[in-house]
Nucleic acid binder design. Structure first.
Length: 556
RNA sequence: GGCGCCAUGGUGCAACGGUUAGCACAUCGCCCUUUCAAGGCGGUAAUACGGGUUCGAUUCCCGUUGGCGCUACCA
């Protein structure tokens, strides 16, 4: 029996609340934002999947998530991923998107995609496509959007005017350069760089530069603190005196009264408008959160639940950037990683399931993901482990799931033959992929390293020759083997095996010598699957032909 | 500089007051073997430092150090 609960954001209201639907009563006590987040939940049984009965305390560092307790029963969870088209989809953004996705898909909520393109200067519209592609490759799908902030200007201006009207914003006439960019040395400070918290005279209605076009700033309260609850980091409290009077609306140019909205305003207005219940984003936004909470308050809206994710660092523990290697998700796609392997790896960066098992397919991830398991420690992007995950998926995926990826790869490299699409050809193809996969690390290996399985046009690796064709008896051995194999009536593993060993024995050499030399001749590589399986996969005609070609090459 | 966050092997995570501090990647060795992988077995390797609280701290508190984040008319 399923129960549905409709909380009007109960976790945000102060004081007790009761809700009774379908015979189930829930009461919430001391569920407030203002005072220490001591929340006591008392709900009745009869609710499936319910973890909390009563006495949940959210004070201090306690990491319980009221969030999830509420969500698991309320259903109406709405999250968003809001990239900015100033760059490609980097791994940090991908992880944020993935966590939002796992969180919301697990409980049947709504995922909204929003493009934060309010900075016309830096914005590159053509990058949006790449971001969407990256998300699709990752398997992160969305229910609403993409919405573009650049098309929602009216909404932001309206909200800004509301703030101005109710006294929580003011017009600032100071020149933009006064505070913009870099660090400002505070007058009179001793050497050090001191950031200025903007509290200019404009805030009291005394324009510093009369006649200039004003920007609109938020009027941060003097004194006091702003608190909020974070599902990952617990409760946070910031002193208002540390918050600058941040800009809401840029000053207008030409005819315009105001310019584009700034980040803080756009985010809050949209999150309110889109009825976002959980803001899951990078920890680099923690410091922005009190400002946003203040904005929610000024706009008369309740704040959502925040969940900040630890940052992803490079091997040197510095913030991940290009110099650490690929940070663009699409580069991992072109390198030939399997999306599910990448997803598995990403999910485990900053989050851990209960048990020891790390090979977690998407369905497992969906089953196990909770915000509670999210770490607070920044993590290093460990490429070797990503590669390990990829080889795991290459090996463990049901063969029918892997085949389409290999097919796409061969099409890309021009090796694909339509006869492999169905029937006996398809069976051969699947078997061959299965034979090859334990030795493959990335998808393109199927067209490079194992090219000889799919094409007669391949070259013999000089290093392999050097290693296994050194013995003077090799040409003669290969010639004999070609004859022996050509004479075989049956073509299977054991027949090839016996014939080969017989040739070696008759010639008085160790089987290994012949086997290794043969491998080089028929696949051009020193490394391949077990030889007789390889022979079966290639077929009698090709094996004999390649052996004779090799022999001929010695003569030349 | 100010404010905030974080701190378990090289890396990612476990241990949520009592464990010989566990797992995985990486690394080293052995086994398997027809090359190379895979797989199996085993080894090296961690609680940043200093004070408390406690019968007992990886775990709770304070400080130090270090790292990271924010400190824009960027997002």
């Amino acid at each position: 029996m399923e129960h549905e609960f409709f909380f009007t954001q109960p976790y945000l209201s102060t004081g007790g609340e009761r809700d009774s639907r379908q015979g189930v009563t829930i009461s919430l006590h001391e569920c407030g934002r203002g005072d220490g987040w001591t929340a006591t939940f008392a709900w009745l049984d009869a609710v499936q999947g319910f973890r909390y009965t009563e006495g949940l305390k959210f004070a201090g560092k306690t990491r319980q998530t009221m969030t999830e307790a509420t969500n698991e029963t309320s259903g109406g969870v709405r999250v968003r991923f809001a990239p900015s088209p100033t760059g490609y989809l980097h791994v940090g953004g991908a992880r944020t998107a993935l966590f939002n996705w796992l969180f919301v898909r697990r409980q049947g909520g709504t995922f909204i995609l929003r493009i934060e393109d309010t900075d016309v200067e830096r914005n590159k519209p053509e990058l949006v496509e790449g971001i969407l592609e990256g998300l699709k490759w990752l398997g992160v799908d969305w229910d609403e959007g993409p919405f573009y902030q650049s098309q929602r200007t009216a909404l932001y201006r309206e909200a800004a005017k509301k703030c101005l009207a109710n006294g929580s914003a003011f017009l600032c006439y100071c020149p933009a350069e006064k505070y913009a960019g870099g660090d400002h040395a505070e007058e009179g400070s001793e050497g050090g760089k001191v950031r200025r918290v903007v509290r200019c005279s404009c805030r009291d209605g005394k324009p510093s530069t009369p006649g200039a076009k004003p920007a609109m700033r938020f009027k941060v309260p003097l004194g006091g603190t702003t608190k909020f609850f974070d599902a990952v980091f617990g409760e946070s409290e910031f002193s208002n005196d540390e918050l600058e009077d941040f800009v809401l609306l840029r000053s207008g140019k030409g005819e315009e009264e105001f310019g584009q909205s700034m980040y803080q305003l756009g985010v809050v207005v949209d999150d309110i408008d889109m009825r976002i219940t959980h803001v899951i984003r990078g920890a680099d936004h923690i410091s922005n959160t009190p400002k946003q909470v203040l904005l929610y308050r000024a706009l008369g809206a309740e704040a959502p639940v925040f969940a900040h994710l630890p940052l992803i660092l490079g091997a040197d523990k510095k913030r991940l950037s290009k110099r650490h290697g690929a940070t663009d998700v699409n580069m991992y796609r072109t390198e030939g990683f399997l999306p599910e392997a990448f997803r598995n790896f990403l999910a485990l960066l900053g989050w851990a399931p209960g048990g020891d098992e790390e090979f977690l397919r998407t369905k497992d991830l969906l089953e196990k993901f909770t915000l509670e398991g999210v770490s607070r420690t920044n993590g290093v992007f460990d490429r070797p482990k990503l590669e390990w995950f990829n080889t795991q998926y290459l090996q463990k995926l049901p063969i029918e799931e892997l085949v389409p990826y290999v097919q796409a790869e061969l099409k890309r490299s021009g090796l694909w033959k339509q006869e492999w699409a169905a029937g006996a050809g398809h069976e051969w193809f699947s078997r061959t992929v299965d034979l090859l996969r334990p030795r493959v690390r990335l998808l393109p290996d199927f067209s490079s390293w194992s090219r000889a399985f799919f094409s007669d046009e391949f070259t013999i690796d000089p290093a392999a020759k050097e290693k296994f064709w050194k013995d003077a008896k090799v040409p003669e051995l290969l010639a004999k083997l070609a004859d022996a194999l050509a004479a075989l009536a049956e073509w299977n593993h054991d027949a090839c095996d016996h014939a080969s060993r017989a040739v070696a024995e008759a010639s008085g050499v160790k089987a290994g010598l012949l086997i290794n030399a043969t491998r080089v001749a028929i696949v051009g590589q020193a490394v391949a699957p077990p030889l007789f399986d390889t022979m079966v996969a290639l077929g009698q005609e090709r094996v004999v032909r390649r052996l004779r070609q090799a022999v001929a090459s010695f003569a030349a």
